[in-house]
């Protein structure tokens, strides 16, 4: 590609170039293989796993995690973290049910909920980006506060949502032969993919994570962009809250406990670096699907659901371990 350059390329630089291009791909390749392996194992162990019905069901269940994981990829790429997404899901989930019960039309409810999610993200983003408090601390506080607000609003009760409206269709409906949540997740993934790799915004997000001071000196509004990813994760969590409320037909402050960990696991499993500067949407997609597969498959082969957590945790550890081994080996040859 660069044949017009004056210097002939030596074999060594060719090798370096290969490693440079292979490095990030290797991680995606690893998780892709892992995903395929999981699918194969479950396909052989049960007849139900590889049926259209189950796959679509799996997609529907994975959708909330996927939607938030896409946004979380941006957050983690900047070198941040958002621990509050589970609590935002609970808050918006409960709030949606309350607003609908109060008789607010469902399109307005959805709009209001998305705004609430974005606003929560904006407040957290402000503390992180403009006040310089570590994202871990701010969102840990958010995790506690927002769950508390949700509990207070519902008094701990589950609030029913009348079915048969456009709202519940978001969780249970079908569109083009796909469950509506799956469609939403696919749209979110496409938007994330394009934004991260093809837009100025995406490049700047990576630049902030890679070297925030260098990014600032080139005139990138680092603080505004840093705050923006939390608005994104807040809004995505609100969307997930809506989808969950619509699917279950109720709003509960106890929804999505531990959700943030599943989301972060999906992102990290996909190969996005926790220290920032490197993010991959395709990897996140595969990570989220792998986690969903494991949960779904273990239930189908009649293993105690308590095992799901153990296996998921072990898979994360092993996958990341393999990745870092593979990765550091490639890196050492530089």
């Amino acid at each position: 590609m660069s044949h017009e350059l004056s210097m002939p390329r030596t074999p060594r630089t060719n090798a370096l170039r290969l490693i440079d291009h292979l490095g990030p791909q290797a991680q995606i390749l690893a998780i892709a293989l892992f995903f395929i392996a999981c699918c194969l194992v479950f396909t052989f162990m049960t007849d139900v796993f590889a049926t259209t019905g189950n796959v679509l069901n799996l997609l529907r269940q994975a959708a909330p995690n996927l939607i938030v994981a896409i946004a979380m990829t941006f957050v983690i790429t900047t070198g941040g973290i958002d621990l509050s997404v589970g609590s935002i899901v609970a808050l918006t989930n409960a709030l949606a049910a309350i607003l609908l019960q109060q008789g607010l039309p469902w399109p307005l409810t959805i709009l209001a909920i998305l705004l609430v999610g974005g606003l929560v993200g904006l407040i957290q983003g402000w503390f992180i980006a403009y006040q310089g408090i570590p994202a871990f601390i701010v969102t840990l506080a958010g995790l506690s506060i927002l769950r508390g607000v949700a509990l207070l609003m519902t008094q701990g009760f589950s609030i029913p949502i009348a079915s048969g409206t456009g709202f519940t269709a978001l969780g249970r409906g079908w569109f083009l032969g796909m469950p509506a949540p799956a469609i939403l997740a696919i749209l979110a993934a496409l938007a994330g993919l394009i934004t991260l790799s093809r837009t100025v915004y995406g490049r700047h997000i990576v630049a902030i994570g890679a070297n925030s001071e260098a990014a600032r000196r080139t005139g990138i509004p680092t603080r505004r962009l840093t705050a923006s990813v939390y608005v994104m994760s807040g809004t995505a969590a609100a969307l997930a809250g809506i989808v969950i409320a619509a699917r279950l037909g109720s709003g509960s402050s106890n929804a999505a406990v531990g959700f943030e960990l599943d989301v972060i696991a999906a992102v990290v499993l996909g190969g996005t670096a926790l220290i920032g500067g490197r993010g991959t949407i395709v990897g996140t997609l595969l990570g989220a699907l792998t986690i969903a597969c494991i949960g779904n498959g273990l239930i189908l082969i009649h293993i105690s659901p308590f095992f799901t957590q153990i296996v998921t945790g072990a898979v994360i550890l092993i996958a990341i371990w393999l990745n870092t081994r593979l990765f550091s080996k490639l890196g050492r040859r530089r």
Binding site: R203, A210, N211, E213, R217, R278
Partner: peptide, 20 residues
Amino acid sequence: LALSENLNVVENVFLGREVV
């Protein structure tokens, strides 16, 4: 402080002033 290690040469040269 001037360069971002995880970005490539082209991205670094145009960082903050991308051609769009």
